[in-house]
């Protein structure tokens, strides 16, 4: 596994009106690394995740992907986004397209793949997330867990350099969380670079190479999962962990 920096955030700041949602964020995600971002609600985790493909703009600082600064807009930005997969909390599958069409749209329209090639690869990916038998259904006909697995296949179809997961299991019924986490764990094992915002501490322990703990718009602590969960260094992290781990 290489350790070339793939995503680098330097001194990133962002405000929503008076609210300072990201404060001097410095974060490097290396190629092949799985970074899990955790923290209380409103700590800026999702916003951080969304700045990496510029679904959120930033006020100051720099973000580079594979050495290239994020373009502000236009075709250059679209090109960059095609290299960054994104999986949303609310799945966001295209409601008017079938499962297979959801997976082939990006390759056909952005990468200019031939329809037959895109469909062949699309079916392979759907096979991999174990949903190939639903290929011709519409998203609304699937369960949440199934929709989220399709969303992961849709992101993979673009052969992204990194995939961002923005609370991918938060909108799921409890019995469907595991099927999505299983797919993500497999991806992590295969060496996909992933930034995962989640409340699933089990996944963080199992799959993360690094845990980033955020509170009040700042990165408070950054460590390996064993170190972070075993002996958190900051009071803020200890407090957070005591609240979520002792039920």
């Amino acid at each position: 596994m290489t350790s070339t920096p793939l995503v680098v955030l330097e001194n990133v700041n962002k405000h929503f009106g008076d609210l300072h949602v990201l404060r001097d964020i410095n974060l490097t995600v290396n190629s092949g690394e799985v970074v899990v971002v955790i923290g209380p609600s409103g700590s800026g985790k999702s916003t951080l995740c969304r700045t990496i493909n510029r679904l959120e703009t930033i006020d100051s600082g720099t973000i580079t992907l594979d050495g290239q600064p994020l373009p502000a807009e236009g075709r250059a930005l679209a090109k960059l986004r095609s290299d960054v997969g994104m999986v949303f909390q609310s799945f966001n599958l295209f409601a008017h397209k079938t499962v297979l069409q959801n997976v082939t749209l990006g390759p056909m329209k952005v990468l200019r793949s031939k329809k037959a090639d895109a469909e062949k690869r699309g079916m392979e990916l759907l096979e991999r997330v174990q949903i190939a038998d639903q290929a011709h259904k519409y998203p609304a006909q699937l369960s949440g867990g199934q929709q989220q697995r399709v969303a992961i296949a849709r992101a993979l179809a673009m052969n992204p350099k990194v995939i961002l997961f923005d609370e991918p299991t938060s909108a799921l019924d409890p019995e469907m969380v595991q099927e999505v986490l299983d797919v993500m764990t497999d991806l992590a094992k295969e060496g996909m670079t992933m930034v995962v915002v989640t409340h699933e501490m089990g996944f963080a322990r199992r799959a993360a190479k690094r845990v980033v703990f955020m509170a009040d718009g700042q990165i408070v602590e950054e460590n390996t999962p064993d170190e972070f969960f075993g002996s958190p260094r900051t009071e803020r992290a200890r407090d957070f962990l005591s609240k979520i781990l002792t039920h």
Binding site: N53, L55, G74, R75, A78, K79, L80, R81, S82, D83, V84, G85, M86, F88, S90, F91, N92, L93, F94, A95, L105, G106, K109, V110, A151, R154, M158
Partner: peptide, 13 residues
Amino acid sequence: LGQVEAARSLGLT
């Protein structure tokens, strides 16, 4: 809005 964001994140112009 999620539909538009998903399309953007795929790299559609």
